[in-house]
Every structure is written in structure tokens, then in C-alpha cells.
Design a protein around this nucleic acid. Structure first.
Ligand SMILES: [Mn+2]
Ligand SMILES: [Mn+2]
Ligand SMILES: [Zn+2]
Ligand SMILES: [Zn+2]
Lengths: 138, 138
DNA sequence: TTCTAGAGTTAGAATAATTCTAAACGTAGA
DNA sequence: TCTACGTTTAGAATTATTCTAACTCTAGAA
């Protein structure tokens, strides 16, 4: 369901370079973690993983890195109704989400599986629509 | 566009009683403010108004009151992608929103003006869909 | 190679939103 | 009138995130 781009550190480094982001060790590791292993993690979940798996890293670096990756268009930052934490999404295509209200887990819904039609007042110009379907996974 | 239920304090008191919420002065005033005057306010905007317009009120009471009104089903709490603040909505019917990304202002979109169709994986059971249309008001 | 300016990282403090604590207060009903 | 319980309060605590200012690294320039 989720597109997972599992790349080697060298390929990650290339992607960072292409995006104009200096590929530091911390950025390579965090970006690869989110691309390959993590599922819609929060900053704090990334920090937990990083503290276990990298030599030493500060909270500020985790936030800085996530912010840098989002600014560079390599990650999306999401805010969902059930939580006050920002969620980082390696899926940067326009897409929608299903929220399992029991577990709090988020699932991607491909753009083409969701159709939205709407009528807006005159003078309202839309340039994006976000859909969150809430429910349960049985 | 937004349904505005402008009621007298006595009518507000009745609504609170009906919902099983003791109609204290603070609750009546805040609930009436959100029903009649405020447009998708944050807790802090409610606090600002309350400090100006009520004899004395604490921040905790504002949060307590908003929480109580949401629990009683008299307000909706919203979390939107552009802000980390909870937004309180007197419109408790299912409805959608338009976010003016320039001003940050939220507009209600009636349920019937938005149509969503989606295809979910087996075992996914939806019980609500939230749509946020983002764009500009010219 | 060495130098160096700018970019990145860091610990810790600061800020912002919200919640908690424990005492004081008010009020509905016995 | 009394009292139990719900409500309000000031202030502290918590949580998520950002800022500060010093230290460190690294990409080029020389
Ligand atoms: Mn509204
Ligand atoms: Mn916060
Ligand atoms: Zn996603
Ligand atoms: Zn609304």
C-alpha cells in the first residue's frame, strides 16, 4: 500500500545532493530510516530510533533534519486530528489517509482511490484537497 | 454560510441543561460567545475575549469549559494542518472546511457541497470522512 | 595540503499549547 | 442550614517544538 523506496546510503546521499541538501551522516541515516523502515513517524519516534542507532545525536538535530527534509520537498509534514504531533511522511505525492482510530495508525490511500467533488463559493480558489477517512481496521 | 445560532443567555442555559452540563456563568458566556460571535476560535482567542468581557476568569477555566462543551457534544474540536492549535467549531453537524492559506481563516463547507467516494482495502471500516480544501479567497 | 567561511550539530534554555494540582468557592439538594 | 460535590482558581507541570550560542565539520579556495 505505501510506496517504500528502500535505498542504500549511497543512493540516499544522491537524493539529498539532488535536492540541494548537504548529505551529512545524520541526514542520511534519518532520511533512510524514514524511507525504509518507519511508518508515518513523529519527531519523537525518529529521535528514539536515532538515539539507539546513531553514535550520538541531539534532539535539535532531529528537528532540524526533519525540517530541512520537509523544506527540500523530500518529506511531507502532516497534522492529523487525533494527535498534536507532526507526522512525517515519506510519501510526497498527493495522497490521502485512513486513520485507524483504535490504534492511531495511519494508512496511505492512493490519490486515485479517493474522488472528491465540491462546490465552492465564488472567489474561492482551491489548490489542494486533503481527505482523512477515519474508522477501524477489523 | 456558517449556521449561526444566536441565542439569549436563557436559551443557552437551557441548551447546557439539556446536555447535562451545569450552566455556570462562565460556561454560558463562553458558549454564547462561540455560538454567536466567534468564528472557529482557538482556546487562546476565547481566553482573550473572556478576559476582556467577564469579571475574572482563569486560563484553566477556559480550557475546562471548552473541553466540557466538546465532551457534551455542544462544540467540535478541530485540528487543521496549518496550525498546532485546536480550533473550536460551533457547527457540530458533519461538515467540511475550506482553509484560506493566506489568512489562515477557516470556512465551513456544508456536507452536501462535498462528495467523497473512496475505495478501501478489505477490513477497513470507515465511519467518517473529513475533507479540507486548501486554497485562496480572491 | 592547509585555511577558512559557511553550514551543521550540540546542550541546554526558551517558548507555546495544554493539562495538572490542590486549595478555595458555589450551589443544588437533603 | 448543612453538606457533598461540582466548579473555578493560581500557579506549577508537561509536552512539543524552537531558539541560542558555542563548538565542529567540510567544501572549496589558495
Ligand atoms: Mn463553523
Ligand atoms: Mn505545543
Ligand atoms: Zn501518507
Ligand atoms: Zn466548521
Amino acid at each position: 500500500m505505501t510506496k517504500r523506496l528502500c535505498l542504500s546510503p549511497a543512493e540516499i546521499e544522491q537524493k539529498l545532493n539532488d535536492a540541494g541538501v548537504q548529505p551529512t551522516l545524520q541526514r542520511i541515516a534519518i532520511f533512510r530510516h524514514i524511507l525504509c523502515e518507519a511508518d508515518h513517524p513523529t519527531a519523537d519516534q525518529v529521535r528514539e530510533w536515532a538515539e539507539k542507532n546513531l553514535d550520538k545525536i541531539s534532539q535539535a538535530t532531529v528537528y532540524n533534519t526533519l525540517g530541512t527534509l520537509v523544506e527540500a520537498g523530500l518529506l511531507q509534514a502532516l497534522r492529523l486530528p487525533h494527535s498534536d504531533k507532526v507526522i512525517y511522511d515519506h510519501n510526497i505525492e498527493d495522497h490521502h489517509h485512513f486513520l485507524d482510530e483504535k490504534s492511531g495508525r495511519l494508512y496511505d490511500l492512493p490519490e486515485e482511490d479517493v474522488e472528491v467533488t465540491y462546490k465552492l463559493p465564488k472567489k474561492f480558489r482551491a489548490h489542494r484537497v486533503d481527505v482523512v477517512v477515519k474508522g477501524r481496521v477489523e
